[in-house]
Design a protein around this nucleic acid. Structure first.
Length: 645
RNA sequence: GCCGGCGUAGCUCAGUGGUAGAGCAACGGUUUCGUAAACCGUAGGUCGGUGGUUCAAUCCCACUCGCCGGCUCCA
C-alpha cells in the first residue's frame, strides 16, 4: 500500500502501482477544468505515471502555469505532427512552450508561406479530432540515436548526443514520434482550440553561426472563447502599438534621413517628455539627490580605464579623432560621475553622494533589433549613481526601492515583479563583498515586504542587482527599473573616501535607473494608456471648441486664462461643424473639450465634454478651472500642479 | 548581422512591361453649423536609391538604404 497526500492535506491509501490519473480521478478541480497532468513530489508527470511509493500529488489543469506549459508543449507536438504530415521532409528541431503559446522549429529548405500555415492548421485540427493518445516510451541513447538517424532527424540526434542521461524518453501520438522529456496531456483531443499564428526564421540553438530554421508560432486554449479572447488581446496590442500612435498623435518619428534608431521628438511628444523629466528632477531633488550633467563624448582613454572598451566595444560607436586624440561617443554615463567623484578628496562624512542625470547615451544596436522607442541607438537614461559606505548600503537600497515603486505608481502602473540576481560564474570582487552586497539587497527587499524571485547566477559580473518589471494594462511585463551594485568601477578608477581612521576606503557604487530609458518608458506609457495620457501628462489638456465666429474672442480669452493658470489649452476657431471639431479632439485624445456657443458666452460658462465619456455638464469658467486644478493636484507634485484661482 | 515579408502622394492603400489612381489630409471657395467626418474645386508622386535586362521598367534581375515579423528560453 502507498499513501498519497493531496493539496488540501487529505490523504488516501492505494495499492502500489496505480496511476496518477486513478489517484486524481475524483479529486475536485476548480473552474470546471480538465485534468491534464499531475505534479508528483513537485515534478510534473503524465497522468499515466505509475505510483509506487508514498507521494504528494497535485492535479495540473490549464489554470496552473505548469499546466499551461504541458498543454502548450503537447500543442507544439501536434503542430510538429501536422507539419510532418504536410511536409514529410521537414526536420524536427525543438518545440517548447513560451510565455504565451509555443513554437516549433523545423529544418526546411524554404520559409513557410501563409498558405502553408493554413494547410498546417487544417491538419492540426484533424489531429485534434483524431484524439490520438500520447504514449511515453523510454529508450536508451544507444537505441534512440539510430532510430532518429533512420528518420533523418539530425537535430534530434544532436540533442540526444548532448544529453548526459543515458536514457531518453520519446512520445508517440498516432504515427508521429518525437524525442521529448514530457510530460504531456493524455491525448491530442484534449486541446480545445488551436491557432497557428506566424512563421519566422530562427537559428538552431539561437546561434547565428548555426543554420537558420523555420519557426512556427502557435497558441491554444481549452475553449474557443479563451482563444478568441487571446486573439482579441493581440489585436488590442496592435491597436496600441506606440509606433502607430506616435505617428497619429504626432509624438515622435524616426526618419531615414537622420538614421535608424534615432528619435525625433515632435512638439507634442516633447511636451510629454518634458513633463516626465520635470517630475523626475523634482522628485530627485526632494529625495536628496543632486543633479549633474556630463558631455556626450570623452577621450577614448576614459573608456579604456572603465573597461568598456574591453567588454562593451561591440555596442559602442567607433571613436573619432580630434587633433590627434581619439574621442568616444558615450554609451554610459557612469565614468563621468566617477570623474566628478574623483575631483576632490571625499570624507566618510560626505557619503552617501547621490548624483542623478538624464544622460543621453548612444549604443550601436544591430539593425535587426531596433524597434520604435523600445530599442534605439540614442536614448536618455534616467541615470543615478550613489556612492556610499558599506554600512549605508542597505538603507540606500531601501530608499531606491521605495522611490522606484512610488514613481512607477504615479504613472499608473500597479503590478510589479521583482528579481534579485546573484553572483555569476565569472565575476570581479571578493566573496565577502558579494555576500555583503547580496545580503543588503535581500534585506532591503524584506524590510519593504517586496515579494521577489531570486535568479541565481544571473547578476552582472561587477555586482548583484535588483530588477523590477512592470505589468501594463494588457498584462505584458516590461523591464525598466534596475538597481546594480558595482565593485568593478570603484576599483578600476581607484575611488576612495577617507574613513574615521584617516585611511582610504573604497566606496560602494550603485547604478540605478527607474525608467531605464526615457524613450523606452514613453513607448511603454503610450501603449499602457493607448495614447490617452492622464490629464497631468496630456500634451494638450483642454481644447476649446467654438460653434461659430461670434464666440471666437470668448474662446481665445478662455485659452489665455487657462494658460495663465498653467494648463495646456488650445482653441479650435475654424468654421467647421462641431461634430468635426469633437471628432478631431477625441482622435487627438484631448482629455477635456469645452464646447462654447452663444449660450455659454452669455452665461460665462463652458459646456464640458470628457474624452471618451462624452458630455459632462456645464459649469462656470472658474468652476472648471478649479476642478481641473483639483484633478492635477491629485496626480502631480506640488510644483507641477497649477495653483487654483 | 541573419531568415522571411514589405517600400507607390503628407497618411491609409489600389494598380500595370507601354512613364500612375482612390479616400483622408493640404490649399482655394461655399456653408455659421450644439457633442465623433458639410459641400464644390485645385494642387500634389524622377512609384526608397543605384545599376542592369529590354525598343520601353514603378513592374523583371542585382546591389543598396529603410521598415515590419522573428533569431536565450536545450528534447
Amino acid at each position: 500500500m502507498i499513501e498519497v497526500t493531496y493539496p488540501d492535506k487529505s490523504r488516501r491509501s492505494y495499492e502500489s502501482g496505480i496511476t496518477a490519473f486513478a489517484a486524481l480521478e475524483d479529486y475536485p478541480l476548480p473552474n470546471n477544468r480538465t485534468l491534464l497532468a499531475a505534479e508528483v513530489d513537485g515534478v510534473a508527470v503524465d497522468l499515466s505515471t505509475v505510483l509506487t511509493s508514498d507521494i504528494s500529488i497535485n492535479p495540473l489543469t490549464f489554470d496552473a502555469d505548469i499546466g499551461k506549459e504541458v498543454y502548450w508543449h503537447t500543442s507544439a507536438h501536434i503542430l510538429a505532427q501536422a507539419v510532418k504530415t504536410v511536409f514529410p521532409t521537414a526536420k524536427l528541431a525543438i518545440g517548447p512552450p513560451i510565455d504565451a503559446g509555443f513554437y516549433y522549429d523545423f529544418g526546411f529548405e524554404r520559409a513557410f508561406t501563409p498558405e502553408d500555415l493554413d494547410r498546417i492548421e487544417g491538419e492540426v485540427h484533424s489531429i485534434m479530432k483524431a484524439d490520438y493518445p500520447l504514449q511515453r516510451m523510454e529508450s536508451s541513447q544507444k537505441d534512440a540515436i539510430p532510430f532518429f538517424q533512420d528518420r533523418d532527424e539530425s537535430y534530434k540526434v544532436e540533442i540526444i548526443e548532448s544529453i548526459s542521461d543515458p536514457s531518453v524518453s520519446m512520445y508517440r501520438q498516432g504515427d508521429f514520434i518525437d524525442l521529448c522529456r514530457g510530460p504531456h496531456v493524455p491525448s491530442t483531443g484534449r486541446i480545445g482550440a488551436f491557432k497557428v499564428l506566424s512563421g519566422a526564421g530562427a537559428y538552431w540553438r539561437g546561434d547565428e553561426h548555426n543554420p537558420m530554421l523555420q519557426r512556427i508560432y502557435g497558441i491554444s486554449f481549452p475553449t474557443q472563447e479563451e482563444l478568441d479572447q487571446h486573439l482579441h488581446l493581440l489585436e488590442e496590442a496592435k491597436r496600441r502599438d506606440h509606433r502607430k500612435l506616435g505617428k497619429e498623435l504626432e509624438l515622435f518619428s524616426v526618419s531615414d534621413e537622420t538614421g535608424p534608431g534615432l528619435i525625433l521628438w515632435h512638439p507634442k511628444g516633447a511636451m510629454v517628455r518634458h513633463l516626465i523629466e520635470t517630475f523626475w528632477r523634482e522628485q530627485h531633488l526632494e529625495r536628496g539627490y543632486e543633479l549633474v550633467y556630463s558631455p556626450h563624448i570623452a577621450r577614448l582613454d576614459l573608456w579604456k580605464q572603465s573597461g568598456h572598451l574591453d567588454f562593451y566595444q561591440e555596442n559602442m560607436f567607433a571613436s573619432m579623432p580630434v587633433e590627434g586624440n581619439a574621442y568616444q561617443l558615450k554609451p554610459m554615463n557612469c565614468p563621468f560621475h566617477i570623474i566628478i567623484y574623483k575631483s576632490r578628496l571625499r570624507s566618510y562624512r560626505d557619503l552617501p553622494l547621490r548624483w542623478a542625470e538624464l544622460g543621453t547615451v548612444y549604443r550601436h544596436e544591430r539593425s535587426g533589433v531596433l524597434h520604435g522607442l523600445l530599442r534605439v541607438r540614442g536614448f536618455t537614461q534616467d541615470d543615478a549613481h550613489i556612492f556610499c559606505r558599506p554600512d549605508q548600503l542597505a538603507d540606500e537600497v531601501v530608499g531606491i526601492i521605495e522611490f522606484t515603486f512610488a514613481t512607477l505608481r504615479r504613472f499608473g502602473f500597479e503590478h510589479f515583479e521583482t528579481f534579485l540576481s546573484t553572483r555569476p560564474e565569472h565575476a570581479v570582487g571578493s566573496d565577502e563583498d558579494w555576500q555583503h552586497a547580496t545580503d543588503s539587497l535581500e534585506s532591503a527587499l524584506q524590510r519593504l515586504d517586496v515579494p521577489y524571485t531570486t535568479d541565481p547566477g544571473e547578476g552582472v559580473f561587477y555586482g548583484p542587482k535588483i530588477d523590477i518589471k512592470i505589468r501594463d494594462v494588457l498584462g505584458r511585463a516590461w523591464q525598466c527599473s534596475t538597481i546594480q551594485l558595482d565593485f568593478n568601477l570603484p576599483q578600476r578608477f581607484g575611488l576612495a573616501f577617507t574613513g574615521p581612521d584617516g585611511k582610504p576606503h573604497q566606496p560602494i557604487m550603485i547604478h540605478r535607473a527607474i525608467f531605464g530609458s526615457i524613450e523606452r518608458f514613453m513607448g511603454i506609457l503610450i501603449e499602457h494608456f493607448a495614447g490617452a495620457f492622464p490629464t497631468w501628462l496630456a500634451p494638450v489638456q483642454v481644447k476649446v471648441l467654438t460653434l461659430g465666429e461670434t464666440q471666437s474672442s470668448y474662446a481665445s480669452d478662455l485659452v489665455v486664462q487657462l494658460k495663465q493658470q498653467g494648463f495646456r489649452a488650445e482653441a479650435d476657431l475654424r468654421s467647421e461643424k462641431m461634430n468635426l471639431k469633437i471628432r478631431e479632439a477625441e482622435t487627438a485624445k484631448v482629455p477635456y473639450m469645452l464646447v462654447v456657443g452663444d449660450r455659454e458666452v452669455t452665461a460665462g460658462t463652458v459646456s464640458i465634454r470628457k474624452r471618451k465619456d462624452g458630455p459632462a455638464g456645464t459649469m462656470t469658467r472658474a468652476a472648471f478651472i478649479e476642478m481641473l486644478a483639483a484633478e492635477m493636484s491629485e496626480h502631480v507634485s506640488t510644483s507641477l500642479a497649477p495653483t487654483p484661482s
